[in-house]
Simulated scan of single mutants.
Amino acid sequence: MSKLLLQTLVLLLFIGCASSKKAKFDDYTFETKKEKDNYIASYDNALKLWDVPYEEENIKTRYGTAHIIMTGPKNGKKLVLLHGMDASSTMWYPNIKALAKNHRIYAIDFLMEPNKSTLTSNALSKEEIVIWYNDIFNYYKLKNFDIVAASRGGWIATLLAIQKNNSINKIVLLSPAQTFEYIDKVGKTSSALFLKLFPSEKKFKKTLKIFSTHPEKINSIYRRQFYLANKYSKSNASMLQMQPFSDDELKSIGNPVLVLIGDQDVINSEKSIERAQEFLVKGKTKIIKDAGHFLTIDQTKEVNEAMLSFLE
Rank of each mutant, 00 (worst) to 15 (best):
L5S: 14
L9S: 10
L9H: 09
V10W: 11
L13K: 13
L13H: 08
S19W: 13
K24L: 12
Y39S: 07
A41P: 05
P53Q: 04
N58Y: 14
G64K: 07
H67I: 05
I69S: 07
M70L: 14
P73D: 01
G76I: 03
L79N: 00
M85Q: 07
S89P: 05
T90M: 05
M91D: 04
W92P: 01
Y93C: 09
L99C: 08
L99M: 11
A107Y: 07
E113P: 04
K116Y: 08
L124K: 04
K126E: 14
W132R: 00
W132C: 00
W132P: 00
D135V: 00
Y140Q: 00
F145G: 02
V148H: 05
A161M: 03
A161N: 04
A161D: 03
N165F: 03
S167W: 00
I168Y: 02
V172K: 02
L174D: 05
P176R: 03
A177L: 13
F180N: 01
V186W: 11
S191P: 02
L195I: 11
F198T: 13
P199K: 09
S200K: 02
E201F: 05
K206V: 15
T207M: 15
L208T: 06
K209I: 06
F211Y: 12
N219I: 11
S220T: 13
R223M: 13
Y227M: 11
A229P: 10
N230C: 11
Q241N: 14
Q243G: 00
S246M: 07
S246W: 10
K251N: 15
G254F: 01
P256E: 13
V257W: 04
V257G: 07
D263Q: 06
E270R: 14
E270G: 08
F279P: 03
V281N: 10
G283S: 08
G283F: 10
T285E: 04
K286Q: 15
I288V: 15
H293S: 09
H293L: 08
T300R: 10
K301N: 08
A306F: 06
L308H: 01
